[in-house]
Design a protein around this nucleic acid. Structure first.
Length: 224
DNA sequence: CCAACGATGGGT
DNA sequence: CCCATCGTTGGA
């Protein structure tokens, strides 16, 4: 786990960040820290895997060809809102809305490296952490990795569900701050589980921090 | 009204 | 590979 260095300035991401091109946002979110403020305290993690969904032009996007249903309203707002939807009855996915109003593009947050609120995460994920699991000097335990290494796992760990759909990331409940500059470790790959998207399934719009231990399970091979 | 479906995760 | 499980969606 990365420890917060007190010497470093952590700055909240603002409107101008989210209003950039979606690919740029997806790349620059790597290394940033997602924070959910809950009554018990802060739960946070460093973003290590993202995917860009390019809106009306992208066959993998919910908003392909301008599709717009009530639950997608946040997607059509200006950059900086959360778009959260439920999947298969019991999973949630968190997206960061990008670009200008009526440009329905977003970045899916696919994996985090835990930072704060380990006990709260473990409770929400039904994972029992032992003292050994907390020793991170050499090897990171399997249970620790399993906390936030997938888009729905991280939502469960941070307590994110559709009650937060449409929340403004410029507010104080759910927000993102600058973290480490890890762009030299960035790698692009095709996106996951979108075979229905025909030729768009091959677009290299997934971004990872190469070698990070918390990438989603299908692509551990990339941690070399 | 109602049936089909899914930007997942877990197990085989 | 298979499939659980339920809110959203869109077509009767």
């Amino acid at each position: 786990m990365k420890m917060m260095k007190s010497s470093k300035q952590y700055v909240r991401l603002e409107k101008s960040f989210y209003e950039q091109n979606t690919i740029t946002v997806a790349q620059r979110l790597l290394g940033c820290i997602l924070i959910h403020k809950v009554p018990e305290g802060l739960i946070s993690g460093m973003i290590v895997e993202t995917e860009a969904y390019m809106g009306v032009d992208d066959k993998a996007a919910h908003s392909y060809q301008g599709k717009h249903t009530p639950r997608m309203d946040p997607l059509y707002k200006r950059g900086g809102y959360a778009y959260i939807y439920q999947l298969h009855g019991y999973n949630y996915c968190l997206n960061v809305v990008t670009e200008k109003e009526n440009q329905p593009r977003a970045v899916l947050i696919r994996a985090l490296e835990p930072i704060q609120g380990l006990e709260l995460m473990a409770r929400r994920r039904n994972i029992k952490l032992t003292a050994d699991d907390m020793k991170t000097a050499d090897k990171i335990s399997k249970k620790l990795k399993n906390m936030t290494n997938g888009p729905s796992k991280l939502c469960q760990a941070l307590g994110i569900d559709t009650s937060l759909n449409g929340v403004d990331l410029l507010g104080n409940e759910l927000y993102i701050i600058t973290g480490e500059d890890l762009n030299d470790r960035m790698m692009a790959t095709p996106r996951i589980n979108i075979s229905y998207a025909e030729e768009y399934q091959y677009e290299p719009w997934r971004f990872i921090i190469k070698g990070n231990s918390f990438l989603s399970r299908l692509y551990k091979i990339e941690s070399k």
